[in-house]
């Protein structure tokens, strides 16, 4: 736990407060007001993000603090775009965006160090921005998908089936599927750009590094999900939902592996 009194830190807290207001408005179903407040929150966050960019003189996606800041700032607009794209709009999705933003901004505000770092030579690549940005975009979509999948599990009831109507579980399951359909090509593009960058910077497109292997495990998890879902369609909505949630669990492990690996002593990773 560490409070930040820098301008960026204070703006993050301000953004979190505004998002919390938006969340309350959304809960009491003042939809218009919630959208207005979301716009303000994003502007506050964007200011922090741009200030960070200027301060460190590179796109702020280098360390954990910057990654979580970027994820938090862009989650709401990405969520809105994803809703437009996929046509899903259960009320939970808009509400979920507020909650996810708060969850993601928390470590940026209170956990990770915001000490500025210079880019070492390996990171000075035109692929740095696109590679990380594409990954983060897909992570946001996968997080939203996992939330829908979680709701699907929560609302699962065997009785609804007999009524021969849309069960809420199926609805959530479909929303999760649509979001993963959007996120998966981006996840693959991220892998592609990472491989090209690895080849240019280190001489190999695949290095068997734990972080790489975890990111491949994520990709394979979603691949399994698609093939599984193709086989059983929506006959097993709960299993489908579990796959999507497992996918996000793997993503979180991938993101935090450098930190988690301190738990498993003697492990190699990029940071060491």
């Amino acid at each position: 736990m560490q409070l930040k009194y820098s301008n960026e830190g204070l703006l993050i807290y301000a953004m979190m407060a505004v998002v919390a207001v938006g969340l309350v408005l959304r809960v009491i179903r003042k939809k218009q007001a919630a959208v207005f407040v979301a716009v303000i929150a994003c502007l506050v966050g964007l200011t922090a993000w741009i200030m960070r960019w200027i301060a460190v003189e590179h796109i702020p996606m280098q360390n954990m603090f910057e990654v979580f800041l970027t994820l938090g700032v862009f989650l709401l607009p990405v969520g809105l775009a994803a809703r437009r794209f996929t046509g899903i709009d259960p009320p939970s999705d808009g509400l979920g965006d507020f909650i996810l933003t708060l969850i993601i901004l928390f470590p940026a505000g209170f956990v990770f160090s915001d000490a500025p770092q210079k880019l070492p030579p390996a990171l000075q690549s035109p692929l740095f921005g696109p590679h990380v940005a594409v990954y983060m975009l897909s992570y946001v979509l996968m997080a939203k998908a996992a939330l829908q999948a979680g709701l699907g599990l929560y609302h699962h009831c065997t009785g609804c089936k007999q009524l021969n109507a849309h069960s809420p579980c199926e609805d959530y399951e479909l929303s999760a599927y649509l979001l993963v359909c959007l996120g998966f090509p981006l996840l693959s593009l991220g892998l592609f750009l990472g491989s090209v960058w690895g080849k240019l910077a280190w001489g190999d497109w695949w290095g068997w590094d734990p972080k790489e292997l975890w990111s491949l495990a994520c990709w394979l998890m979603y691949l399994f999900y698609f093939h599984w879902r193709y086989l059983f369609r929506q006959k097993m909505p709960r299993t489908n939902c579990v796959c999507v949630i497992l996918g996000l669990v793997f993503i979180i492990i991938t993101l935090l592996w450098v930190n988690l690996s301190n738990v498993f002593r003697g492990m190699h990773n990029y940071a060491s």
Binding site: P210, W214, M221, H227
Partner: peptide, 28 residues
């Protein structure tokens, strides 16, 4: 064949997780 493919994807996923615990050199 389809079931085999599905199983193969699952196995590969598990192999990756196993490899992640080995460290880069051993995983290679």
């Amino acid at each position: 064949i389809y079931h085999l493919g599905l199983a193969a994807i699952a196995v590969l996923c598990l192999l990756c997780i196993f490899g992640a615990f080995l460290g880069a050199e051993n995983a290679r």
